[in-house]
Design a protein around this nucleic acid. Structure first.
Lengths: 204, 204
DNA sequence: CCATAACCGGACCGAGCGGTCCGCTTACTG
DNA sequence: CAGTAAGCGGACCGCTCGGTCCGGTTATGG
């Protein structure tokens, strides 16, 4: 974003390959994947990485921004669906499916100041707002409990994948099982007991 | 475990302090907490750490073994409770509460061979079996769905804390909210749709 | 086709890590 | 109370990492 004019052809190709390689390395080796291994995987030199991104954290921010924009766009495209409950379930399924292959967990290791500087917060906030809208419509249609809030669902988004993570390789579809359990827990029917207040509106 | 006879008094005190300091550091700084910072926090030198534990991974294994034994003992003590559904809920609440202050996430960074050598697997397996027993009794009493397995519940154990983690500091009791939602999802009443098979029996 | 600026990449640097070593200190024992 | 082995801890080592730099290379405009 806010790129300098007319990136040279080979530079553009290297940048694309670099982002792809970095995403793969972070997924396989976690936040500690080395810049050198990423560069090797992309078929470029270490110096070229720092030509494209000021630091490792900036590289992480770029990857995560792409994914948040993708998710936000998906949520927005579901905004007008007639069955809001199904739309919400579809969104959560798509979100979990993406996390299966592209975790964002490595983000925790990055410097928050860099994330802010790279504009991650704005993109994330936009995605959150789109999810909140889905939740509000689903609640309005009685598809989920009256006391379930938008932030609740955002917090629960990562849960199915996280639960199934220890067996993700052996049963790559297992997250569906736990998404189904969680969706059941959100349904309005049945005797329930939800203690404690909803989370504060903005996630930090 | 299998300690040499009669640890000297100061050595025993240092070992206790070391374990406490290491747990705190891992919680605050994650798996990358340095041995040096742990030693400083415990008021001892770096060399003393390696006198007590052969490597950083062995230190992690010792911490995690303590906690697994604690959890396993709790599950076993609940084995005979008359209301098996309530016993299971109590256990999951206690488990989440412990995780709130003593995460085991850093375990992922340790060498599996060392964990095996330190006997973590046996302790974990014993804890799992105790949980499976709780689940079986709860299912037998109709407190949870018939198609929910022991491994399901083990996988779900960490979920409430993980969901609430982004707000753990601001709302330290928030995990209760998500434990309640998940327990609702496990209840037998209502129309449900659980696709996909149960996970394979042993967790790797 | 040439000039030039943008780009590339590997050699290099300093920091911080896990782990080792050994001279000094301190708690037990006869 | 003295001898001694166990315990201690900080200096030190080798390694890997993120990040810098500059000589060589390649795309592009006149």
């Amino acid at each position: 974003m806010t790129e300098t004019r007319t990136l040279r052809a080979d530079a553009a190709r290297n940048r694309r390959e670099l982002l792809r390689a970095a995403a793969d390395e972070f997924r396989e080796r976690g936040p500690d994947a080395s810049i050198e291994s990423i560069a090797r995987r992309a078929g470029i030199g270490k110096g070229t990485v720092f030509r494209h991104f000021a630091s490792k954290d900036h590289l992480m921010a770029a990857i995560v921004t792409d994914r948040l924009e993708d998710l936000g766009g998906l949520a927005e495209s579901l905004a007008g669906a007639p069955d809001a409950g199904a739309a919400l379930a579809d969104f959560l399924a798509a979100s979990a499916e993406r996390q299966q292959e592209q975790s964002m967990a490595f983000l925790a290791a990055a410097d928050p100041a860099v994330l802010r500087e790279a504009g991650v917060e704005e993109v994330r906030e936009r995605m959150f707002q789109a999810v909140y809208a889905l939740v509000d419509r689903a609640r309005g249609q009685g598809a989920i409990r009256a006391d379930v809030t938008g932030p609740d669902v955002v917090l629960l988004m990562c849960a199915p994948t996280h639960v199934a993570e220890p067996l993700a390789k052996a049963s790559p579809d297992l997250w569906r099982r736990y998404l189904a359990i969680i969706l059941d827990g959100l349904r309005p029917d049945g005797a329930r007991n939800l203690p404690h207040p909803a989370p504060p509106a903005p996630l930090p």
